[in-house]
Structure formats: C-alpha cells, structure tokens
Amino acid sequence: MSAGGALSIRQVTKVYDPEGVHVVAVDNCSLEVASGEFLVVVGPSGCGKTTLLNVIAGFEELSEGEIRLDEGPLALPGKQVGPGAERIVVFQNGALFPWKTVLENIAYGPVVQRRMAKNEAQRSARELLRQVGLEGIEESYPAELSSGVQRRVEILRALINEPRVVLLDEPFRGLDAVAKSVMHQFLLDMFERTRCTMYFITHDLDEAIFLADRVVVMTTRPARVKLELSIDLPRPRDHRVLGTERFLKLKQAALEAVHEEALKAFQAGERELA
C-alpha cells in the first residue's frame, strides 16, 4: 500500500450561511499534517471539528484560506476539488452500504474507480479480511455484524483504495470499552502497515494520546488550534502504555487545555442565554 500524503491547512475560515445567521465554524485555522503522521484532533462539542473535516473531504466549501494535499490544491474559496478516493472518510455512525455484503462493500471503491475488475477487487477484499482475521463474514450484510466488526470493515473499505489520508470522525464513539480497545489495536496495526496519514477526531483523551503522533486541541467555536502536543510514546504501543507516567503527564496537559476551552464554551453559552 502507498505512503501517506501531507496535508496543509492554511488560514482556513468556514462560515455557514454568510447572508443569514452567519455561523463562523472555523476561523483562520492553520494546521500542517506530515506525510504518514497520525494526527488526532480534540476540542469542545460544536467547536467546528467536523466542519473542518468536511472541508478537507470535499463535502463543504471553505470561505477563506486554502487546503493542499502534497502541494496539490484541494480547496480555495469558490474552487473546490470534490470528494475523492485519496481522502477517504470513516463516518461517525458508520456508512457501510446496508444493501451490499461485506465483500461488495470493501470491493466497491476499486471497482467504481476502474482500478480493478470486480472479481479481482473481491479477491483482494477477501485477502484483506483474512489478514485481519475476519474471514467468514464475506457474504454477511452489515446489519448482521456487531458494530465493532462493522467499523473494522469500514476501515478496510477505506484502506483498500490506498488513500493518502484517512479522515476519521469519532469512528469509535458509542462502542463499549472492550470493543474500543480492540478497535485501537486494529487501527494502529493498520497504520503501521499502510503508513497512510490519519486525521482522527475524538472526544476521548485516552484514545487520542494512545493513538496519536500528535494531538491538536481546538479552541471553542470558531475552531482554531489551541495546543499541539507531540506524543513521544514509543511504537508499537499496547494498553500498558496507558498506565505510564509519561502518558499521564501528556493527558494532564491535554486535559487542562480542553478544560479551559470547555469552560469558555460554557460561559459563552451562559452569555447567550442571559
């Protein structure tokens, strides 16, 4: 599989409904994501994390600034490269096609991109499933699988396309602790193997630090980068790292920043109500 792409977010502003309510969701936000980096974004609810991800993915247009992927422009005001297989999104509530089997879901990308014939794509989908120990579910429909397995299948559906960036928007939200830790191991494993750039949004600081090369804490709305935290924990990581002093120290630093912003969001909320 291919190496990751470098994502450059330069002074991006996103305003929803500029003529009407005028919601500034992202304000003059700059962020560099290195090729093959695992970046995790945290920040208060409603601060604009999903909005920025949607702009990167090509679902939304930005209002100002620019986004580049490996120096190729992705988005400028009024000029947007639409969604494409080099930046695949893994959605918060899962978006496997319910009407396709696991095999058809995973094989979908290469087939519609005309990169592989259908049976070739299905063969490599089968191979992927085998490599991660998920054989036997090829002919199942998503609704027949547990949500943990669905998430893994969805990640495979993204990775088979050899994307340069995978954009994950709280993909493990709602999973129980055990399923979550299985997912973390799985995702890190896939990351080691593919080294594609990961852009991962979460609210869970343990998850953030466990997965990331770097954690970015966003300000309350409009989103800007408040704090960047380099996670220098050695890889490969497993759950034992969660108890180390270094981990707790990093978590403390992140927690303080998040707390400060959450407090601001809370006060802003009170002002609006008053």
């Binding site: 969604p83 297989a85 695949i88 999104v89 096609f97 396309n161």
Partner: peptide, 15 residues
C-alpha cells in the same frame, strides 16, 4: 451519509 461515502470512494454519478 451514503451519498458522501459513495462519492469519497470515487463514484461517478452513474455509480
């Protein structure tokens, strides 16, 4: 979300 998933997987309108 299915339209979005399809489009980022590289679908053309016909797909």
């Amino acid at each position: 979300v299915y339209f979005r998933a399809a489009s980022c997987l590289g679908s053309r309108p016909r797909d």
